[in-house]
Amino acid sequence: MGTTSRRLRKARVDQGSCVACGCCVKVCPREAIQIVKGIAARVDLDKCVGCGRCAKECPATVITMEEAAV
């Protein structure tokens, strides 16, 4: 992973398919993810550093790493 592209990526949750298990929350090094009202995960884009750990962990594979304009 190149450091330049890494900085530009952000985690995005497909909230309609999220099961709100919270696995992503546990692995995020920046506390950038929260489970909102027990329904779905939400990423705080300001905090997310795009490491991709949440996407790897998510058992439902509903997190994608996407390029974001910073």
Partner: peptide, 26 residues
Amino acid sequence: KPRSWCVYCPMGTMTQLICKARCGST
């Protein structure tokens, strides 16, 4: 994945449904 069970765990599904119902919408 390690916690694949959580995707179809009945308790997890049920609690999420309750939370959804409580909120009325997503």
